[in-house]
Amino acid sequence: MQSQNVPNYLPQAILTTLFCCLPFGIVAIVYAAQVNTKLQAGDYEGAMQSSKSAKTWCWVSFGSGLAVFLIYFLLVILASLAPQ
C-alpha cells in the first residue's frame, strides 16, 4: 500500500515553528496536518502534494530563521567593533 510511504513532516514543522520562524512554521504545520487527513480520505495524490508543501515550508521556515539569526549575529559583531 502506497499510503505508508507518505511522510507528514509534522515533527519538523513543529520544531521549525518553535525555533526558527513562527509564521512560516505555522503554514508547515497546516500542510503537515493535511497529510493524514487526505490519506484517510483516500486522496493519495493530495497527501503527496501536502507532504511536499509541508517539507518546502519547513525549509523556508528554517532558512528564514537562520538568515535572521545570521543578520543579528553580524549586527552584534559590527556594533561591538564600532568605536565608542
Rank of each mutant, 00 (worst) to 15 (best):
L22C: 10
L10T: 03
V27R: 10
T17W: 06
A13H: 00
Q34R: 13
P83C: 07
F62C: 04
Y9S: 00
Y44P: 04
W57V: 00
K52W: 15
Q40I: 07
T16G: 00
S64C: 11
G65T: 01
N5C: 09
T17K: 07
A79G: 07
L66V: 05
T16Q: 04
L70N: 08
F73E: 07
T17A: 09
Y31T: 03
V68S: 09
N8L: 05
C58H: 01
Q12H: 12
G25H: 01
G63W: 00
A33C: 15
L70R: 09
L22S: 11
S3N: 14
L39F: 13
K38L: 14
I77H: 10
Q40V: 06
G42T: 04
V30K: 10
L15S: 06
A13S: 07
S61W: 04
G65L: 03
Q12W: 09
L22N: 11
C20T: 02
L18A: 13
A67I: 06
Q12I: 02
T16Y: 03
A54C: 05
M1W: 14
K55F: 10
L81C: 10
Q2I: 10
P11K: 06
L78F: 13
F73S: 08
L10A: 07
C20I: 02
V68Q: 11
K38R: 14
Q49P: 13
L66D: 04
L10S: 04
L15K: 09
Q34W: 13
V6N: 05
N5M: 10
N36P: 15
F69G: 13
A32H: 02
T17C: 07
A41K: 15
M1I: 06
A13Y: 01
T17L: 09
C21P: 07
A32D: 00
A41D: 15
W59R: 05
A32L: 03
S64V: 08
Q34A: 12
I29N: 01
Q2M: 08
L70D: 11
W59F: 11
S51N: 06
Y44K: 04
Q49D: 14
S61E: 03
Y44W: 11
E45L: 12
L18F: 13
W57R: 01
D43N: 13
A41R: 14
V30M: 10
M48N: 15
A28M: 05
A13V: 01
T17Q: 10
M1T: 11
L74F: 13
Q12L: 12
F69V: 11
C20A: 12
V6T: 05
Y9I: 00
S50T: 03
V76R: 09
G63L: 03
W57K: 02
V27Y: 12
K52D: 12
V35S: 01
A54H: 01
Q49M: 12
S53L: 15
C20F: 06
A54I: 00
Q49R: 14
V60G: 01
T17H: 11
D43Q: 09
Y31N: 12
I26H: 03
F24D: 00
T17R: 05
P83W: 15
S53N: 15
S80C: 11
Q49K: 10
